[in-house]
Design a protein around this nucleic acid. Sequence first.
DNA 1: GAACGTTATATCCAATGAAGCATAACGAGC
DNA 2: GCTCGTTATGCTTCATTGGATATAACGTTC
Lengths: 128, 128
Amino acid sequence: MMARLSIRIDLDPQGRIGPGKIDLLEWIGRTGSISAAGRAMKMSYRRAWELVDSMGQVFGQPVVVSQTGGRHGGGARLTPFGEQLIARYRMIERVAAQAAAPHLDALQDEMRARDAADTAPLGADATP
Amino acid sequence: MMARLSIRIDLDPQGRIGPGKIDLLEWIGRTGSISAAGRAMKMSYRRAWELVDSMGQVFGQPVVVSQTGGRHGGGARLTPFGEQLIARYRMIERVAAQAAAPHLDALQDEMRARDAADTAPLGADATP
DNA sequence: GAACGTTATATCCAATGAAGCATAACGAGC
DNA sequence: GCTCGTTATGCTTCATTGGATATAACGTTC
């Protein structure tokens, strides 16, 4: 039983960013196109575009700049802020995982330890 | 613009546990009943029960023991494992947040810094 | 200037999730 | 023994989400 950490960042009004959006950004950076990134992640262009757009709205600034028409029909690139966002997220992910590692291990030990052993029936009353 | 960390733990085959399920467990511990916990969280009993059940399945052992009938109609209590699970999750949440804090701050600075400033149009080509 | 692949957007539809409602079993308290 | 609140479960909507498809605009390349 493996246990990994999954991190997301909650922004104040309403907006989250988690591993999915960050992966998408990385794919856009790698492929130079939203649609190619979508294909790589087996995600519809529509969804990929919506995710990109929602990030731009949440952060109040675009995470990618795009171009219609052109060499291969157009394309998209990460903005400097988009790249920073990826870097920050990965950094946070890394340090959080490091800090949590021993506790995750302990949790797994506890899971194995009690394996359906003690589940005392409830005797006294709880707070009603 | 506030940024908080939100943590969830991914278990190997398929199973996640995040803030929602942990909150629910805490409410069950506090109130001594699944339905009361559901009400407190404005969640249907159905859903609360399903979440509890899914946790039991994911971990291969119950996180709460329940009793039908009785003093106030029945009730539910956390198993020792359930309590340990809460404690571990909160611990992980705490150390992860501590480790991530400076980077979250940095991210917020970066968000403010670039506020729609530089979004250079794409000139060269990307990896096609 | 025609072709191509992409962005951007609208529309329709399927899948999923969750709420709501209904019901049975249960057991302490009155 | 009747009531009451809870567990446990089924079933029936209802809303949200995401996929699929269609279309227009666009600009390099041929």
